[in-house]
Design a protein around this nucleic acid. Structure first.
Lengths: 232, 232
DNA sequence: CGTACCGTTGAGGTGAGTCAAAGTAAGTGG
DNA sequence: CCACTTACTTTGACTCACCTCAACGGTACG
């Protein structure tokens, strides 16, 4: 969000006006930041901590589709869609959230094309191919989906020169399961297998990856023959 | 698209300028309108016919996620995201497509906040909960996913007073399978079952639904106990 | 009247869900 | 600091929906 404002060459007076409207609030683990079905009244931006976005379908089956990292926004989809929130945002860890009232955001968007353009980009990139693979999975074994999740988390984390990496997962096994559209039991089994193969060793919420490239290869070699599901 | 322009109170000169940039082209069944990985250079709008959007993952496994109906837009996601297309658009039936060059669209968006607002809405609503259920499925049996697809198609089709309806499907079994993230064989079996239960009778690409409400109920009663996959 | 392609049906295998129970970590109160 | 509760995680046994492979019937089109 800060980034959006900076890169849009907004006059300082407008920035100050926006800052006045901001509400900051802390949330503790498990607390809901906003709930599915609630009317969207503003924009949320994560200052610190991690949050999870998940959607419950008609059968009350919950599927998580995004881990929100510090600095990222959430709730913009329903804000612009003028629909109630289609997902629930829940704090994975203790976190601080900025809240921008709807009117303030929309006004700035109307007045600053560059600012609007940035939002278009964010909106258009949301739920792109990045998450797609991990999420739609289904034909992909849970183990491979888990590997993909790890590789996604890794990019925003550290990773040393030797091709090794360590991830501090902000979420529980249950949350991982929700992200993979799988069951916690299945995730546990996948974790066990990855450990036995020496690809990724889980110790609590810490994941040690001896060789990142090996993980990448693991994804690709699991490929089952020639898959064809749509028009040629 | 027409709707967007009309509702944004644009001066007629701008509308005419846009109209000059339009390129209209016909596509025959199976032809690709744009391809995944290609650089996005404009906006596509379907005049007539039907198109299918599908995404191929790293394993070349193809999943369709949207049936584009006459009057709807496509390709806007990658246009604003400034990324290559993440999906392929393919003609399901013979169809006519308008093409709006990128520059023309972006210029109008910068100059007309109301027009921009409309696009925000379209973008934000795309891939909302409507499609989610049908797509993520996985925990939902193929039969129920199929029923959901039928109900989605029905809303944009006809449906008489007695609660009966008839759908003319624009796509092949193979395409249905891609939309449901299933295999054609599984779709065939689901179709057979629906026919035996008298819920929906398939004759080629024509679907006769004696009782729409019964279909709705069918979705809900299939529910498997209490599902819980994310933080409580 | 072939040649394709599409659609359907059958048989067999399997990944992952379900259920149930044991093991482990975390947080609470005396 | 230790019992105790609570929640999370892991394991095993079982089941099942769907995928795979393979064969056959149907329809369109040259």
């Amino acid at each position: 969000m800060r980034e959006h404002i900076r890169s849009s060459n907004m006059p300082p007076t407008d920035v100050q006006a926006l800052d006045k409207t901001i509400v900051v609030r802390g949330f503790s683990r498990g607390e809901k930041i906003f709930a599915q079905g609630a009317v969207a009244s503003g924009l949320y931006c994560l200052r610190s901590g991690h949050a999870l976005l998940w959607h419950a379908d008609a059968f009350n089956y919950k599927t998580a589709f995004r881990v929100v990292e510090p600095g990222e926004m959430m709730g913009y989809r329903s804000l612009f869609g003028e629909d109630p929130h289609v997902a629930t945002a829940q704090a994975l860890t203790a976190c601080d959230v900025c809240y921008y009232p709807k009117e303030a955001v929309l006004e700035l968007i109307d007045q600053h094309p560059k600012f609007a353009r940035r939002f278009f980009r964010t909106l258009a990139r949301d739920r792109g191919p990045k998450d797609a693979l991990v999420l739609r999975g289904q034909h992909i074994p849970v183990r491979v989906r888990l590997v993909n999740l790890l590789l996604l988390m890794l990019s925003s984390d550290m990773c040393d020169r030797n091709g090794a990496g360590v991830i501090q997962l902000p979420m529980l096994r249950r949350d991982i399961a929700a992200l993979l559209a799988a069951r916690p039991e299945s995730v546990a089994r996948a974790i066990k297998e990855l450990g036995e193969d020496g690809l990724a060793v889980f110790t609590g919420r810490t994941v040690a990856i001896p060789d990142v490239d090996a993980l990448y290869q693991h994804c690709n070699q699991e490929q089952p023959a020639e898959a064809q599901t749509a028009v040629p």
